[in-house]
Design a protein around this nucleic acid. Structure first.
Lengths: 232, 232
DNA sequence: GTGCCTTTGTGAAGCAATGCACAAAGTCGA
DNA sequence: TCGACTTTGTGCATTGCTTCACAAAGGCAC
């Protein structure tokens, strides 16, 4: 029997919907700050950058939290989405690799405000170990397993160079972590039951370049051949 | 008449395929470095983390570049994918906002090696202007329009705080830029014909938290109610 | 109450992406 | 030259996502 990786659809919530919930949450938080009490699907959709039918269908997967003729109660919806995403609890996150990117992540305000607590910063470079960043002291990567178990870390962010990523990945999985956010430009091999999400900064630029090229050429490009002199 | 935004499908390449091409390219570059001459769809798919049928279908959108019974020539495929993505030309990129994230991006090696040349670093903070990062001197944000036009910048990366992002966005669009990579946690409003891709670091963590919560609960969670004391 | 107006929630249709399975095409050894 | 073997390229069925369009639900004015 193959054990399926738990997916969104375990309770019928499509992955595409889950990926948009944080967007709605952000829009709602903005509205809450501005004192808005209720919001229609039309307005919320506009603020989140999607169309209103999609928004309503997404929300309908969570339950029926709107009032016909009125809209959604902002505070209530914030609570329901937060709960669904698991943001009503506190998540301990460790960041491995404290280069520029690791520092940027450690200082990023968007984490703390959403229930993510940076519980450890680790790096293999002795020159970095001991630095104080965002109120934490950088620890040596040797401490990885002990930091994870002692501080209840359940999500690890890998911001190391590509060459170190798989080794770090193996170690954190051995230590019991099953959720990994990977910024290193490699495909991590993981066993079933472990979730990896990846962010590759250069992939996004490449996709933009593709579209930019299309625009510049004003249409289908000529079939340019393999340049002379290159031997297959 | 509504002018359609140029999409991948203008030449029949689905967006989902475009999004995977950079993945294949990275895997192929790794193989080329290791001296591999040809690769089967099976092996390449494994290295890229997709299944082989999908890989073959993706590549078939570019043309028929494989040899039956043998596989794909690594160098040739690298060239074809690079050309399709527009990486055989040089793209001048400007990064606006030189905080930790902007610095991380400026120092990220993955850009230069793929035809992306950082042509300018800009920031509004006088304390940062003049700093030397990755071989470039940070310029004042006032220079934005002149940097874009004088250096032929066609892609702009926004790594500013959320509050500044829309203003920067408007200015770069006015200056003729139509491709934007946005790291600020806001939905940018842009006219038709402008491509925006966004990367939100906290959204990825929220999606992980959702799945982690599901795993921890071992199944559908109880319908927890709106806590007492909170008034709708 | 009653009836009008607004806005949700959702079937159903349409569209895009995925995965299967195999014929066609090519290599290579004998 | 031939036949066995490998691997591509793709038609087709399936799945998943999006969008439409409207009935049902609720608020509000009178």
């Amino acid at each position: 029997m193959i054990r399926r990786i738990p997916q969104a659809r375990d309770r019928g919530i499509p992955d595409a919907t889950v990926a948009r919930l944080p967007l709605y949450l952000r829009a709602l938080n903005g509205m809450a700050e501005r004192g808005t009490a209720t919001v229609s699907s039309e307005d919320l959709a506009l603020a989140a950058g999607v169309n209103s039918a999609k928004l309503r269908k997404d929300l309908s997967h969570l339950g029926s939290y709107g009032t016909r003729g009125v809209g959604y109660d902002v505070q209530y919806l914030i609570y329901q989405i937060s709960r669904e995403l698991g943001l009503t609890q506190d998540w301990a996150v460790a960041i491995v690799g404290v280069g520029n990117l690791g520092r940027a992540l450690a200082n990023y305000g968007g984490f703390a405000s959403r229930g993510f607590r940076i519980a450890g910063l680790l790096d293999a470079d002795p020159h970095v170990v001991g630095d104080r960043i965002a109120g934490l002291v950088v620890e040596h990567a040797d401490e990885l397993e002990s930091v994870i178990s002692k501080r209840g870390v359940s999500i690890v962010v890998i911001a190391t160079p590509a060459t170190a990523a798989q080794r770090v990945c193996d170690r954190v999985i051995a230590a019991g972590v099953t959720s990994i956010l990977n910024f290193a430009p490699v495909v991590l091999a993981v066993p079933d039951g472990v979730d990896v999400r990846k962010v590759d900064l250069s992939i996004e630029l490449q996709i933009l370049a593709f579209h930019e090229q299309r625009k510049a050429n004003g249409g289908p490009i000529m079939a340019e051949e393999w340049p002379d002199g290159v031997v297959m």
